[in-house]
Amino acid sequence: MLELKNISYVVEDSKGIIKDISLTIDDNKFIVITGPNGGGKSTLAKIICGILKPTSGNIILDGKDITDMSITERAKIGISFAFQQPVRFKGVTVKDLINLAAGKKLCTADACNYLSEVGLCAKDYIDREVNGSLSGGELKRIEIATVIARKTKLSIFDEPEAGIDLWSFKNLIEVFQKMHDEIHGSIIIISHQERILNIADEIIVIANGEIVNKGTREEVLDSLLDDSVSSPGCSVLREER
């Protein structure tokens, strides 16, 4: 179980701030966090996996305070994170990255299975470098494969649908459902996509650094039609009229 207690993150440029968020995510839950851009969703995900340090508050995983733990320590106790913009590496192959994620040297067939799960033809990709020759969509799928290979109790995906074409979308949904069924861990997905919201156990809406709505899928989806959390647009222009 993951608990966030009074988490705040305040930075000077005011983008991506978090204001006193408290939240509990039970085991084996499928949670989708949604809300307008710049509202603090990615910041919160990075705080959970240790990339950002909260300015105040505590993070508790299975009763243990992990607030001061490094990224590496959190990874080792079972937190995974799929980046919104996957990182490129010159010289590191797809297989290297999957082996690192799995924490052991996999045989080629096992490594290929993870690629096949995310809809990549394994033999075309396994020995390729994770560099600029791969498209954004290909990198995104490889990023998702690295998280699947980790099999951790908490997996966080930051906008996994970005760059994934429509043909692959059904496949992506299946990947998350299969992961949820097989790993029995919690999955947190940051997403704007209705089709991903539709498979959530719970939906959390974050705007302006705060939780503005939270509940079961049915409860939250209805109220999302309300425009209260939509982006305010260009307020300066509005005032000048």
């Binding site: 990339i51 990182v87 290297d96 980790r150």
Partner: peptide
């Protein structure tokens, strides 16, 4: 950061990146 999220320490991540690069 990416390699640390896979469980490598900062030093291990650095060595992995240099080895891959060369």
């Amino acid at each position: 950061t990416k390699l640390m999220t896979l469980g490598l320490t900062e030093a291990e991540a650095e060595a992995q990146i240099v080895n891959g690069f060369l």
